[in-house]
Design a binder for these strands. Structure first.
Length: 821
RNA sequence: GCGAGAGUGGCGGAAUUGGUAGACGCGCUAGACUUAGGAUCUAGUAUCUUAGGAUGUGGGGGUUCGAGUCCCCCCUUUCGUACCA
């Protein structure tokens, strides 16, 4: 039996004692930064999902190490946040205490996994020496005008008792964290101006190797749209209605204009006879929740104001309506309605019997035919006076030009992306380094006073809609850095996504006191070569990090444009189809498997389950397969114990001098080396593991080989085992008679290309594309000989007899197909 | 609604440019060893079959000598998104 307990313990001690995983960060040669998303230490311990994230990624990193790369693989804790605070509310235990207790436990588990983390780089975001630099970042953003405070309608989670960023509200209008329904509230809050970087955040997506899905999500979230902003005069008024449109080519099709219910223009455009109805309508909209209002299944509602706008291109007077399908937060909050060519306007026009005018003709359609639905495609312009006959694209440009000439419009780019709301009315986070003075207004805490420490005494955690820090007099009351008069501190804390948007740079030297991070090291190690984490962060963490990275690049602190060059999302492991969660009580505990099979077997099984980015449903029944494999490996190597002390292997062998058995062993070993390398490099762990299983099946008759061939095979096998089963690999390497840790002294054998060349091939014989036989022939056999052999095949004969041969197809070394009729 | 991905034996899953579908593993069947086997080893294992073959990668069409792979339509499912003008 393979004594995994003893062996795994032994190697972990050796690795730790010899400091095998300390990275030379000063070096700039062959660097590989392998990063997993750091841990959010909520009360729960590491579960299968963590293992699935960290284990295989570590195997990838170890493989880089074994190939001689200078690998940096750190781990740390995203230690601020709600779970610890909620726990404190429930139990009274201070978040600092519970968080640290959790981290202690988690660290033990992490070490059990046998990952090659550089523990010198471990960090916690809840320490002042870390969050000080969040505050510093805030100050820099403020100084560049990229951090600002405004009163705005914000998303409010009544359960978490705090505001949320747009990204933290789910599609169904619930809180990303707790699932409560999010409401709207008007509050004065701090924002980071991520929109300033919208264009670059979008363009940068083309330069990074990320899953297309994720890039698309970011692209949609940023939501760039190119169009024209133009104005409609208001009939009988000096005011104008500005609208944004991506389809100026449909301007002649505008039959009404719509204002969002929040629009400030409503009051002045509404006529007296419509005022009551309009007011009633606006009130009715207010009482709707955001979800109700934005539901696309809801029938469109709206009321006419009685006022009229004037179409800038043809002077036509068209009615002004108020409707809640127009959003105040996008564009100008006003829309020109073209029912003929916009689905929403079409639906609205049908409902309220407004005219529908066709101004774009779909290719091949009749200009006079009635529109059954909005035609949103492009085509020839019609009913558009002098623009008739132009293509949509040309029309867009020409109409815009005319508007520009007449001073009635301009080209405009709009983004769906909003600024990042970072204030949180919670305790367990980074204090916002701002002081409010009656005389001086909002004043930044001077950099030399940072960090503004989060008070740890006399905290009333209980949420009451305000920030817990507001009740801590000692914290709140301070003096103005400008005028020294009594002043008050900002009592909110920062969104924890601020913490996680730059931690990968801090890992390089978490003790660095002269700045946010050590720029010299950051330039050696940025961007991160391989980042691995859950797809749920596709638009939050991963977008914020990109923004912050670009900002600190602009400060001159780092010279790369993107934080993460390559990204992979591990899939989700479910249990009976359901996401594992404490509340459902369906969490699978990894410890049960570790104690029964050892961490290597568990890790290898996770890798073997299926494609890494797909995850899958947990089913422990297959783990015995991996266990058997490990047992067979151990038996095999034990049989050849100390072989490296008895013999030496060559780097390469000429095939001619090998026996048949040796030749097939030699070939298989080299095929496996190549396959293993390509699969592992690309995170296809399941296939990499399978290739080693195939190899051990092939090594059945290894004892019929010469000793040096035996060693040749086994040393390669051991080295390939090491990344995916690190303790096992080390032990097998040692059993062979090697004295040094394979990770301390990395060894990798590249494949022998000559071994992959086969001397004979199996030709597939087909009749009408159907398999009828196979023949083994020397490679590159002459076509005529293949043809002869094919025609001699009994089955081929019986399927072609009495039929006319139409043609014969020969694909060299692959297939001979006879087509008959 | 829209956008992106997925659908292959009893199960998890393999499969270069279109060229032997089902690697590897689980499970199952039979045999060997054994006091015993839920250990280990060996062999087999897509389905139907009149034993010649026929069928087979969600369904239906198509391109091709040849399609899991390419094209069109549809179904199921996962994820994202929710009137962004």
């Amino acid at each position: 039996m393979y004594p995994f307990e003893e062996i795994e313990k032994k190697w972990r001690e050796i690795w730790e004692a010899r400091n095998v995983y300390k990275t030379d960060l000063e070096s700039n040669k062959d660097n590989v930064y392998a990063l997993v998303m750091f841990i959010y230490p909520s009360g729960a311990k590491l579960h299968i999902g963590h293992w699935y994230n960290y284990g295989p990624t570590d195997s990838w990193a170890r493989f880089q190490k074994i190939k001689g790369k200078n690998v940096f693989e750190p781990i740390g804790y995203d230690a601020f946040g709600l779970p610890a605070e909620n726990y404190a509310i429930k139990t009274g235990i201070h978040p600092y205490e519970s968080t640290n207790t959790n981290i202690e436990d988690i660290r033990v588990q992490l070490k059990e996994m046998g990952c090659m983390y550089d523990w010198n780089s471990e960090l916690k975001t809840c320490e002042p020496k870390y969050y000080k630099w969040n505050q510093w970042l805030f100050v820099q953003l403020y100084k560049k005008g990229l951090a600002y405070r405004k009163n705005a309608p914000v998303n409010w989670c009544p359960s978490c008792q705090t505001v949320l960023a747009n990204e933290q509200v789910l599609a169904d209008g619930t809180c990303e964290r707790c699932g409560s329904e999010v409401t709207q509230k008007d509050l004065t809050q701090w924002f980071f101006k991520i929109t300033e970087y919208a264009e670059e955040l979008l363009a940068g997506l083309d330069k990074i190797d990320w899953p297309e899905r994720t890039k698309l999500m970011q692209k949609n979230w940023i939501g760039k749209s190119v169009g024209t902003e133009l104005e409609f005069d208001i009939d009988g008024s000096d005011q104008k209605i500005r609208v944004f449109t991506t389809r100026p080519d449909t301007l002649f099709g505008v039959t009404y204009v719509v204002l969002a219910p929040e629009s400030k223009l409503i009051d002045s455009v509404t006529t007296e006879e419509n005022r009551v109805k309009v007011t009633e309508y606006i009130n009715s909209v207010k009482s709707l929740t955001e979800i109700e209002r934005t539901s696309t299944v809801k029938e469109k509602t709206g009321v006419p104001t009685g006022g009229f706008a004037v179409n800038p291109v043809n002077g036509e007077k068209i009615p002004i309506w108020v409707a809640d399908y127009v959003l105040s937060t996008y564009g100008t909050g006003c829309v020109m309605a073209v029912p003929g060519h916009d689905e929403r306007d079409f639906e609205f026009a049908k409902r309220f019997d407004l005219p529908i005018r066709k101004v774009i003709l779909e290719a091949g359609k009749d200009a006079d035919a009635l529109l059954e639905e909005a035609y949103t495609g492009t085509g020839k312009m019609i009913n558009s006076e002098s623009f008739n006959g132009l293509d949509s694209a040309e029309g867009k440009s020409k109409i815009t030009d005319r508007l520009i000439n007449e001073n009635k419009g301009e080209r405009k780019i709009n983004f769906r992306l909003r600024d990042w709301l970072i204030s949180r009315q919670r305790y367990w986070g980074t204090p916002i380094p701002v002081i409010y003075c009656e005389d001086c207004g909002e004043v930044l805490v001077p950099e030399e006073h940072l960090p503004v420490k989060l008070p740890t005494e006399n905290i009333d955690f209980k949420p009451d809609g305000g920030s817990p820090l507001a009740r801590n007099e000692e914290f709140v009351n301070t003096t103005c850095p400008n005028c020294n008069k009594p002043a008050k501190r900002d009592v909110d804390t920062m969104d924890t996504f601020v913490d996680s948007s730059w931690y990968y740079l801090r890992y390089l030297n978490p003790k660095f006191s002269e700045g946010m991070f050590d720029s010299k090291l950051a330039n050696n190690w940025s961007p991160v070569n391989q980042y691995v984490g859950g797809a749920e962060h596709a638009v939050m963490h991963l977008l914020y990090s990109r923004f912050v990275h670009k900002f600190i690049r602009d400060l001159g602190l780092v010279n790369s444009d993107e934080p993460f060059a390559k990204l992979i999302h591990q899939g989700t492991i479910t249990n009976q189809g359901a996401k594992m969660s404490k509340s459902k009580g369906n969490v699978v505990n990894p410890n049960d498997f570790i104690s029964k099979y050892g961490s290597d077997v568990f890790r290898m099984y996770l890798m073997f389950m299926g494609p890494y980015d797909e995850g899958g449903d947990w089913n422990s029944s297959g783990i015995v397969g991996v266990e058997r494999f490990v047992q067979r490996v151990f038996t095999l190597f034990s049989y050849f114990k100390n072989l490296a002390k008895e013999t030496n292997s060559e780097e390469k062998y000429e095939l001619e001098i090998l026996s048949e058995v040796e030749k097939s062993v030699y070939r298989k070993v080299n095929q496996t080396v190549l396959k293993y390398e390509t699969e592992l490099d690309n995170f296809r762990f399941n296939v990499a593991v399978a290739s080693l299983m195939e190899l051990i099946n092939e090594l059945k008759n290894l004892n019929e080989c010469r000793k040096d061939i035996q060693l040749y095979a086994l040393e390669r096998f051991a080295v390939m085992l090491a990344p995916i089963g690190p303790h096992l690999g080390e032990e097998m390497w040692e059993i062979l008679g090697n004295e040094l840790s394979i990770f301390e002294n990395p060894v990798w054998f590249t494949h022998d290309e000559a071994a992959l060349e086969v001397d004979s091939v199996t030709i597939i014989l087909q009749v009408n594309g159907k398999l009828r036989g196979k023949i083994d022939l020397p490679i590159d056999t002459d076509e005529q000989l293949v043809k002869n052999a094919t025609w001699e095949d009994e089955k081929v004969k019986s399927h072609t007899e009495g039929k006319t041969v139409v043609k014969e197809i020969y694909v060299k070394n692959k297939i001979y197909n006879i087509v008959v009729r």
